[in-house]
């Protein structure tokens, strides 16, 4: 049973101008890629990936809408409700791992890198953002021992362009046993297209509008597969996503209407 646990915010870390990490007084041992439902009493409840998965739970949040704006108004010592960790996390296969994270999508990949490096794996991480000051967890990944390649849309750090540009160039030179990606869905769709052509098995962490978070309401079911993002996901294998005509094209809003992703 996933009871609502109301816990204190222990520490807030400002990662970038628009991204903060909230450490909670909740001891967890989660699998990287798993999520929690975060309740702001009287406001709303939203799913967030765990960005720190051992010891005090950490969630890393981009300020985007009303809910995250209210979350950013909280201070250390304030209370949040948590259900979870829940869902299927990433599964590590092979020894040479490649991570591709865009924006706040790096959040679940950082603990994955740490775990893999502790287990003696080799980790290369491609980290992208709009601009240099919005890059997330670059130092954390380096500290853990990962090789980090950077892209920014405006060229203020690393290669000017997208993570997928770096990925395409890298895969001309090197190969990997497994790829993991999280970020904007159109980016992930492109990542899967590239890794598929190089026959690198890939796991992607999806974001959908969640209601129940426990696999019964049906809100987050992926068309073409019947898979529930909150239960069989949020991480999926490329094989599973290939069966979905929804992935990379649209998502469903709270009413269940299809909303198509903007074309890049």
């Amino acid at each position: 049973m996933h009871e609502m646990q109301v816990v204190e915010i222990k520490k807030i870390v400002r990662e970038t101008k628009r991204i903060r990490t909230f450490f909670l007084d909740l001891d967890v041992n989660a699998i990287p890629g798993q999520f929690v439902m975060v309740w702001l009493p009287g406001v709303n409840e939203k799913p967030m990936s765990a960005s720190y998965t051992r010891g005090d739970l950490g969630i890393t949040v981009l300020r985007l809408g009303d809910f995250t704006r209210r979350l950013f108004e909280l201070s250390e010592g304030d209370l949040l409700g948590i259900r979870g960790p829940m869902g299927r996390g990433f599964k590590i296969y092979g020894d040479r791992l490649l991570l591709v994270g865009g924006g706040v999508g790096v959040a679940p990949l950082a603990p994955l890198a740490e775990e893999a490096l502790r287990d003696g794996k080799e980790v290369t991480a491609i980290v992208g953002a709009l601009t240099a000051s919005e890059l997330l967890f670059v130092d954390r990944l380096k500290r853990a021992g990962a090789r980090v390649l950077i892209s920014t849309d405006d060229g203020t750090a690393g290669r000017k362009g997208f993570t997928t540009d770096v990925l395409a160039e890298l895969l001309e030179e090197e190969s990997f046993d497994q790829c993991f990606t999280c970020g904007p869905e159109l980016m992930m769709a492109k990542v899967l297209e590239i890794t598929r052509s190089k026959r690198i098995p890939t796991q992607a962490s999806l974001h959908r509008y969640f209601k129940c978070g426990i696999g019964i309401c049906g809100q987050c079911v992926l068309d073409g597969t019947g898979l529930r993002v909150c239960k069989e996901g949020p991480t999926f294998r490329d094989k599973e996503l290939r069966r979905s005509h929804e992935f990379g094209r649209y998502w469903r809003n709270a009413a269940g209407q299809k909303i198509y992703f903007g074309r890049r």
Binding site: H2, W39, E45, C212, C217, A255
Partner: peptide, 11 residues
């Protein structure tokens, strides 16, 4: 209809 705000389910 978008329905009610979350939490929409409690165990």
């Amino acid at each position: 209809r978008e329905g009610h705000p979350n939490p929409t389910v409690v165990e």
